[in-house]
Amino acid sequence: MLPDATVLNRILSDAGVTARVEETTLGIVAHVPCEMAVEALSALRGSDLDFHMLLDMLGADTGEGIEITYHLRSLSRDEDVFVKTEVAYDAALRSVWNLFPSALAPERETAELLGIKLDGHPNPKRLLTTDGVAALLRKSVAVRSAEEVRAR
């Protein structure tokens, strides 16, 4: 289930990525800087740990920026790893679709719901909402209050 953190560290540093690998309640998490995220994912995919499947990808508003989590899975070794990176609110996220095509839709969704830009995505338009809808998963966007609902 859990990959070896030292092996992960070695793979990432061999690829020239400054990473911090730790074990949390989530599992093995590798924190990488935003500009090296694609290199880190590429290294993990090509390594003998064989992380061939991007199971999921999500973003979270931490209050200081958007934290992107990539969830990779190696079916041959039955191991999962989470790669986390921080993107500033006004920055662009580099697409990893040519490494993992499964990121195509989740990237679009993350970009529109968290209000960041996509870089290198073949179809970077909105996925779920229409033009003019705010970045709904941002903490600054509030849900409707009880009064608003009552006065519908």
Binding site: L113, R126, L128, L136, V143
Partner: peptide, 12 residues
Amino acid sequence: TLGYLHRGIEKL
């Protein structure tokens, strides 16, 4: 094209 049933499960 998706989103015709996007109703905010994650936000809510």
